[in-house]
Nucleic acid binder design. Structure first.
Lengths: 225, 225
DNA sequence: GCAAAAGTATGATTTATATCATAATTTTAA
DNA sequence: TTAAAATTATGATATAAATCATACTTTTGC
C-alpha cells in the first residue's frame, strides 16, 4: 500500500502521453519550483500563467467562501496536475493551491501546455478521461453532502485518503491534516471533526496519534458509507 | 432569453466538432429514439451501450441513494449529451436519465462514438473542455452544500434554471419541476422546498403558478448567494 | 529552548432543517 | 368525468450539527 515516490520529474500525465518528439520541447520549456509547507502554489484570482505537476510533496486545492470558511476541493500528491481548468476562458484561477508539506513542482507555461494538447491528441484524450472521472467523484461528493450524515462523510474521507495516499510503516495514512483541513474537506466544523474522530476511535474503527490516523477496521468503517 | 429550439438533429457538440468526412459515418450509424415523459432514457446499472444527444425535450440525470432518496445531478435540454463518462472502464451507467417531458434523442453506439473521438481531436478537446467546466460547476455545488443554507441554494438553483432554460412569454422559467425534483437537486426535502418557495414568494423575489416559477427580483435573489 | 501561536478535545446551548402529521389541491388514467 | 393517486402547503416536534466557551496540547519561529 506504500505510495511509490516519483524519483524523477516525469511520473505524470503530461510525460506519459506526450510523443517523444514533443517531449524535448516540453523539457526545454519547463521550470522547476519549490514551495515551502504552508505557502501557496497559486491563489484564487491570480492570473493563470501556467500549469503545475507535483514532483514531490502534497498540496491542497481549496476555495475560500466568504471571510472565514473554505472548502478543500481535493488533495494532490506527486504525479498530479494542478491549475488547468479547460481553455483559458477565464484568466484567473478559480481555486487556490497550498503546499501541505515542502513540495517541488514542474511548471509549464499555459501557452506551451495548450500547444502540447494540440500536438498530442492522446494527451487531450487522457485529460478528458481524467476530468470525466474527477467529475464523477465530485458528483458523488455532492450526493454524500446531500444525504449522508457527517460521521459517514468522515468515514468516507478517511477511506479515500488511505486509498489515495497509502499508509506508512506504522500503518498511518501517509498524509497529515489538521482537524480544520479535514473539516474543510468534509464540509463541517473542526469541533465536529474532533468529536467524530473521538467516536470512531472509541469504536475501535481507527487509531490516532496526533495528526496521524490509522484504519483498524476497514470493513466496519465502510459500512458507515 | 427564450431558448432557441434545435429544429434539426444537429445542434450538439458531436455535430459541431465532427469533421465533414466523418459526419457521414455518424449519420449512418445514428438512431432516433423517443421517450415519453417519466420514462427512463437509461438507468443506473444498465450496461453502457451508447451515448445520447437530446433533440427535443428535457431530461433529468439522477442517482438513487439508498431506497428512498435520490440526487439530481443535472437537468439536460436539446443539444446536451447524455451517457458518456470517459473511457469504458466501467461498463454500467453510474446514473439514470429520465425524461421530464416527451423527449426525442439521437442515439450513437458507444464504439462508434469512441471511434469518432479518435478521428476528431477537436471533438475530444471540446469534450475535455466540457468536462472541465462541468467539474468546476459541480465543485461549486459541493461548496454551496457545505457552506450555504437551503434558502441560498434554492435561490441559486432558480437562477441556474433561468439561465439554462430561459423563460417563456409569461416570464416563467421554461422547465416544470415537482417540489420533489427541486429538493433532489438542491439536496433537501420537498417540505423545505415548499416552505422556501413560499418565503421567496412572500418576499416578492419570485412569482409562482403551480409548477411554474418566475423571477421577479433577480438582483435581490442573487444577493442570497 | 522558550514563549507565543496554532491546534485539539470536550461540554453547554442554540438553530436550521428533517421528520411527522394533516388537509387541500392538482394530476393522472380508467 | 370522475375517482384514485400524486403533489403541495403548512403546522408541530425532534434532532444533528453549528456555535459558543474553556482548558489543554502541540507546533512554530525567534
Amino acid at each position: 500500500m506504500k505510495q511509490k515516490q516519483a524519483d524523477q520529474a516525469g511520473e505524470n500525465i503530461l510525460y506519459r502521453y506526450c510523443i517523444p518528439e514533443w517531449r524535448t520541447v516540453v523539457d526545454t520549456g519547463r521550470e522547476l519550483r519549490s514551495v515551502k509547507k504552508g505557502q501557496p502554489v497559486f491563489s484564487e484570482k491570480d492570473i493563470v500563467q501556467g500549469v503545475f505537476f507535483i514532483d514531490t510533496g502534497k498540496v491542497k486545492i481549496h476555495q475560500r467562501w466568504g471571510d472565514e470558511k473554505e472548502l478543500i476541493i481535493r488533495f494532490a500528491k506527486n504525479g498530479d496536475m494542478l491549475g488547468y481548468r479547460g481553455l483559458g476562458k477565464e484568466k484567473v484561477y478559480p481555486v487556490s493551491a497550498t503546499a501541505l508539506e515542502d513540495t517541488t513542482l514542474v511548471y509549464l507555461d499555459i501557452r506551451l501546455f495548450e500547444a502540447t494538447l494540440q500536438v498530442n491528441p492522446r494527451l487531450t484524450y487522457a485529460l478528458m478521461d481524467f476530468y470525466a472521472n474527477e467529475l464523477e467523484a465530485t458528483e458523488r461528493r455532492v450526493r454524500n453532502m446531500a444525504h449522508m450524515e457527517v460521521k459517514g462523510r468522515v468515514a468516507e474521507a478517511i477511506t479515500m485518503l488511505k486509498r489515495d495516499f497509502g499508509v506508512n510503516e506504522q500503518g498511518f495514512i501517509d498524509i497529515k491534516l489538521t482537524r480544520q483541513d479535514m473539516a474543510s474537506y468534509v464540509g463541517t466544523t473542526y469541533e465536529t471533526i474532533s468529536r467524530m474522530i473521538s467516536e470512531l476511535e472509541a469504536e475501535k474503527l481507527i487509531r490516532t496519534s496526533g495528526k496521524n490516523i490509522a484504519v483498524l477496521n476497514e470493513k466496519q468503517l465502510e459500512q458507515l458509507l
